[in-house]
Each structure stands twice: as structure tokens, then as C-alpha cells.
Nucleic acid binder design. Structure first.
Lengths: 198, 198, 198, 198
DNA sequence: CATGAATGAGTTTTCATTCAT
DNA sequence: TATGAATGAAAACTCATTCAT
């Protein structure tokens, strides 16, 4: 059948795309935009350099796509928090553990690079601009507010608290790229003192 | 006079070197090794590209020199802590403020890049290897220990505490590269709860 | 078919390599390692400069490959002598004419350059070191010995004779690079008096 | 006194020039025009690169001067032959030994390079053009002619004989640049058979 | 006269991208 | 689709030459 043939084609195409994107995050996140050669990505994805251009018009487009993807990813991660069970602080703890241990750091790295490095495509820059820390703060704000009302979280401007929390988390993600993740359980305990204040 | 002539030459040479190194940290820390073109550094230093090679054999050598320098720099910064007045926790607060606000973040950035990026000269990698977080932990360990004895710092394995503190600080330095430094005073307060536990 | 496709690719690749090597001997032998620009070779081979680097990692590697090749070539030439018909001295005459007239002088030139010039890659130097005149002497020794037994060749230490013969030949090859080859027939006659002693 | 002062100045200047020229032959003869950096010559002469330009306008001028010098030198050497004592063939033997053992090969090398390499200043090329092997042949012609009349030298066109002799000698000079001069005495014996025919 | 820092044009080398197969 | 050869523009690096001291 035509259609099933076409579907198969599409599926293959999508799989290839994923395959490339997967390879690309890894390489980009470790070497930066400029430091990454298309041939490296092709290599990592197990295809020829030429084929990359059947799926992505250019290095820039590939990177931009990746950043877009990474941003969605990180947002969903944040939103998970609300689905966890337990009190607000427990939710926050679970979220923290998830972020620090899960090892999606490549995404954060990518976003960070897009934000801080020069030599990044304008399109990626634009994407990032609309996606400041504020966005994340807004996402978590209700949770922290609730935590304060319950008395689990220290008093003070909740926005500031969230901002501080996110900064620390982000920083740690960046560091995490290379460290061997050890005793994070304890770390989370210590970390959370910052917001529980005890 | 011969000697004064020679001295002058030497002085010029040293000044140029500093001038180049200064320009180079800035550029490298923002763009990474690969993303940095020699011409950018030359530009930033206000000299011709060719002249760079009178002072440094190659991009790699320049970068390696810089990493070496950055490591010394960051150690001295840490050691400052012991010269501050006040109780241990006050010293730590001062150090924290110094680090976060002073804007030496370029150095940290550089070290981090050397540690985490591929495409970094082997010589730099080797330098970094002998210079893990442990070194810093050892530097601050006595201060934290003392703080615990005085009762200013929360109980628990002090090594772990220092490690946690340093990780957070390092992470923030990385982030700081680009952010507009705002209300850090408050942040430091919140941050320190992590180690004071109150 | 896969396989035929692959074979074709390989063939193209090999042809290109030869094409480049051919162009390179010519240029290198006339201009020396340093005097030769990659663009000249590319030009002579009718390809773009960039393509050279698909086939050879660097100028040095290209040169070294060439020297290796030249050494093999020159040895085979010597070994030809034994296949010629006639008495020993006739074989030597034929060999001499072959060498002097055939115009493989580019190879000799190359080897000579590798041996005598500075600014030649270490790898090439090493190759050459194991390939002194002695090697050639040993190759021709039996032929000369036989010639003496037959009475065609003058008495005396045959090694010395061979060495002398080879030196003269080598020297002439070097000169020959540029001269218009004229009446070599006579020259060979005169030349051979050196070893026939009459 | 003014004048003596000026003379001294001149003398120093000339000494410097010689010093530079001496250094330059050595380097040029081994590395070729393109392979030689002005800084190498300066180094070899023990002066600063800048100072070279007080004595020679450019690399090309320096090289050209050198070629001129080398040509004069080699001609005088040839002319020596006539001053030696003994029969023609003895004179030739002495000349041959002088040339082969004295180790002025750097000059020959230089001339050869000027003749055969590309990348040589036009001025040097022009000099060389008027200075072909013919010139040398003419110089030695009378000596060989006389030798034939005396019966020391084999019959045949003397021009051809001289040409052949000179070619061989020149070739050996080129080779000699690097070899450790060993038992040349014997070689000369063997060599001369070429022209004595016995 | 002497030095060596400084320049900039020219080379080598790299790599995103295209294209024939 | 898939490959990898081919191109060319851009970057790293070299070096003859100039120039301030």
C-alpha cells in the first residue's frame, strides 16, 4: 500500500531526526556551537555528514531546534512538580532530586550556552530571550507561596526565594555536566535549608 | 644606559603580556577555546594578530597560561577569607560577597571551561586534573570546622558542607557571567542558611 | 550494487591520491619542502587546496609519503640491472643509461633534499636515515664482483668501486634535474672508464 | 682624527658584512632561499634581525650578493689549477683534490640552488644565466688539451671531456654537502681514470 | 649603529556546505 | 535516501620588513 509505505517513510525520517538530535545535544553541550563540527554530529549519529543536510538546513537550524526542544523539556520538568504527592516542600524536594540526579544536564548546558556564548545563531538567541529565569520563577511561584502558608518554607519575598532556588539549581546543573554524581541525597537536604530556613 | 634600556624593554614586554592575558580571559571566558579567534583577542588587546605570536606560541599555549593564572588567582581569593575580621561565619559571608560580587567570574568560567569542554588543549586538561574541587575544600575546611565549634555553623560532616557550599558558589559564578548583578546582599543571606541551618 | 559502488569509490580515491603524489613530486623536487606551497600542488593536480587535506593530513605527511615512495622506486630501478641481458659490464651500462636518461631524477632529487635540507619533517629524516648509500652499494655489489671475475671491471676493492660509481651517478642525477639531456651516450662511455679502467 | 675614525667605521662595517655573508651561505646552502628565514641568518651571525637591513636591503639582495660572490670564488678556484706545479694531469689531480676535500661545497650548493630552484630572485637568475657550465669548460680547456698532447689524457673531443669532468665534479660537490668526507684520495684515483683512460 | 617589538600580507589548515553518484 | 568527495571562505600561524627607542 502507498499510504503505509509513506507512513513508514515518515517514521524512518522521524527516527533519524531524533537520532541526530540526540547525538547533537551531547556534542553541542560539551563543545559549544563553534567547537562542534558537523562531522562530529554525523559521526555520533552514525551517518554521513551529507545526510545531516537532508534533515536540517544548517548547523544553526539544528542548534536552534535543539534549544527549542531543550526549553520545552525543562518546562515540562518543572511542571511535573505539581503532580507529585505530598506537601509543597516535599514536592520541591522531589523536583530537586529529579533535576539534580536525572542527568538531563545536557539540556541545561545547551540553554546556558545559548544564553551566554557568543557565536550562537540569532534565532536561538531570540528564542532564549523570551525565556528568562522569570518564566521559571512564575512556574514555581504558586508552589513556594503555598509552602510558606503551610509554614514549611521560610518567610520573605517568595519570588526572591524562588529566584534564589532556581539560580542555585541551575548553577549546579552546569557543574553537574562533568562531575560524577555522588551523594546528592544529602546535598538536597543541605540545599533545602536555604528555603526551609531550618 | 644599557641596563635601564633593557629594563624598559622587559617592562614593555611584561605589560604587553598582561594586556594580552587580560584581553584573552575576557574573550575566552565568554566564547570558549574554539569559539575564540586569535584576531578577537588581538582586537581586544589593541594589537595586530601577528604580535600575539611574539608572546605566545599558539592559541593553546595562551589558553593554558591563562588557566594556570586563573587557578592561582582563585586560590588566593579563597585564602583571603582567613584575613578578614570577625567570626568564622562572618568571614565566610565576606568571602561569599567578594566572590559573587567582585566579578572575577571570568576566571571561574575559564577553569570550568577547561574542565568540562572538549577541544581544550591537553596541557590545560592536565593542569586542571591536579586541581579538583578537593583542593578548595581543603582550603576552607578549617574555617568551617571552627565555625561549627563556635556554633555558628550547622552540625554534620564539615567536608560535606564545604563541598556543598563550594558547588553552589561555583554554579552561581558560572551563571553570573551574564546576569546583571542585582540584589546579591539578600541572596547571600538566603544562601548562608544552607550552612548556618537557621 | 553496493560492492561495485564501493569499489568505484576506492578507485577514485586511489586515482586522486596518485594524481596528487604525481603533482607533488614534481613541485617538491624543484622547490623543496619549504618552497612548495600546498596551493601549488593543488594547482598542479587540478584540485582545490582543501581537497589535499582529505588525502594527506599535512604538507609534512605528504612529503614523507613521497620520500617513502621515492625510495622504493629507486631500489626497484637498481634491481632492474640484474634482469638485463649481457655481461655484467653491459648490464651496468644499460642501468646507467636508464638512470641518466630516463628522467626519474625527480625521485633522486627528493631523496637528496630529504637527506640534505633542513626544514624537512622528522619523519622523513628518520626514513632516510635507514637508507644510506650503503643500501644501494649492497644491491650492486654482486654485479661488480662478477664483473671483476670476468675481467671487465678494474681490480680493487669492489665496494669502493660501487660506492664511487653510485656517488658519481647520484651527483649527475642531481645536476640533471635542469640540464637539457644531450649526448649522454658518449658520456656514459667516458663515465664507465672509471670502472673499467680502460 | 676624523679620517681614521671613518676608516675604522668602514672596517667594522665591512667586517659585519663578511660576518653576515658567512652566516648566510651556510644557512642558504642548506635550507634554500625560501626555507631560510632572515632571523636564522641574523641568529647565525649573532646579530639582531633588524640590523641585517642596515647591510642588505632585502633577502633577495643578500642572496644575490652571495651568488655573485660564490661565482667569483669558484672561478678563482679553477684558475688555481694553472699555478700548480707538475704535468697537466698532476695539476688536474691537485685541483680535484682541492675541490673535493676543501669543503667549499656551500658555494657550489648555492650556485646550484640559484640555478635549479624556483623562488629565487630574478637578479640572481640573471647572474647565473651568464655563467653556465660553458664558462668553466673554457677555463679548463687549455689544460686538458695540453694533457692530451702530452699523452696523459685520453683521446677524444677535449671539450666533451672537460664537460664530463666538470659534471661529475659538480655532482659530487652537491652530494658532499652532507657526507662525511672519507677516503677521497682513492676516489680521486678512480675518478681520474675517466679522463686518463687507464 | 643596534635592538627587538610591531605590522600585515601570505601560507597552511579547517570545516560548513554542496553535489555527483 | 545516503554517501563521501569536492569546494571555498575563514581561521591559525609565519615571517620579511619597518620603526621607535
Amino acid at each position: 500500500m502507498r499510504s503505509s509505505n509513506k507512513e513508514k517513510q515518515d517514521q524512518i525520517r522521524n527516527e533519524r531526526r531524533e537520532q541526530i538530535l540526540d547525538a547533537a545535544v551531547k556534542v553541542f553541550s560539551r563543545r559549544g556551537v563553534v567547537g562542534t563540527k558537523m562531522s562530529m554530529i554525523a559521526n555520533a549519529a552514525g551517518i554521513s555528514p551529507g545526510l545531516l543536510y537532508h534533515y536540517f538546513k544548517s548547523k544553526d537550524e539544528l542548534f536552534t531546534t535543539l534549544v527549542e526542544w531543550a526549553m520545552e523539556q525543562s518546562h515540562s520538568t518543572m511542571m511535573y512538580a505539581y503532580q507529585f504527592s505530598g506537601s509543597p516542600i516535599e514536592k520541591i524536594r522531589t523536583l530537586t532530586e529529579l533535576i539534580l540526579c536525572e542527568g538531563d544536564s545536557a539540556y541545561f548546558m545547551l540553554i546556558h550556552q545559548a544564553r551566554t556564548s557568543d557565536g550562537v545563531p540569532e534565532s536561538a538567541k531570540r528564542l532564549i530571550k523570551h525565556h528568562s529565569m522569570e518564566t521559571y520563577v512564575d512556574q514555581l511561584y504558586p508552589l513556594f507561596k503555598e509552602g510558606q502558608q503551610v509554614g514549611d518554607i521560610a518567610a520573605g519575598d517568595p519570588k526572591e526565594l524562588v529566584y534564589c532556588y532556581l539560580s542555585v539549581i541551575s548553577g549546579l546543573m552546569l557543574l553537574a555536566t562533568q562531575e560524577d554524581e555522588g551523594q546528592y541525597k544529602m546535598k538536597v537536604d543541605i540545599l533545602l535549608r536555604m528555603i526551609t530556613g531550618s
